[in-house]
């Protein structure tokens, strides 16, 4: 469930680990490096921006909507599209600006891949 600051960041971190492994498997070395950098950055942002006074329940998001399917000929484009949608959906739900900005930056990178 994507119902808290931590669950959203945990999902994003796991998603980037999956993307990194996938990019490595298909030989997309630079994108694998990008994904790992995003993963590390998200871990840091989670650590530095978990703000006790603004921890609030989050609703309206369903983890099942963002499950990566990395099989098939269109898998890369589909996965990047899904990651973009995930970051676009979750960023507005986060009430700490620096953490929100990190998620928006991930979205921008996927947007650039898909352009």
């Amino acid at each position: 469930m994507l119902n808290s600051f931590g669950s959203i960041f945990a999902f994003a971190i796991a998603l980037e680990a999956q993307m990194r492994d996938y990019y490595q498997a298909i030989g997309a070395v630079e994108r694998a490096k990008d994904a790992d950098k995003r993963r590390q950055n998200l871990e840091r942002v989670r650590r530095e921006n978990v703000t006790e006074i603004k921890l609030e329940p989050i609703d309206g998001l369903d983890e099942a909507d963002y499950v990566l399917n990395l099989d098939g000929a269109e898998s890369q484009r589909n996965a990047e599209g899904l990651a973009l949608r995930f970051y676009q959906d979750v960023a507005p739900k986060i009430n700490v600006r620096e953490a929100q900005r990190a998620l928006e930056r991930c979205a921008k990178q996927y947007e650039a891949y898909l352009a």
């Binding site: 808290s4 931590g6 650590r47 530095e48 006790e52």
Partner: peptide, 28 residues
């Protein structure tokens, strides 16, 4: 910072709060 997640998990184990609350505590 290096042990951040370990500390948060330990707080959860002995105190019962959520992981985010424990992270928030370590941050503070």
């Amino acid at each position: 910072e290096e042990r951040f997640e370990d500390i948060a998990a330990l707080i959860v184990s002995e105190n019962g709060k959520t992981r985010d609350e424990a992270r928030g505590e370590v941050r503070r």
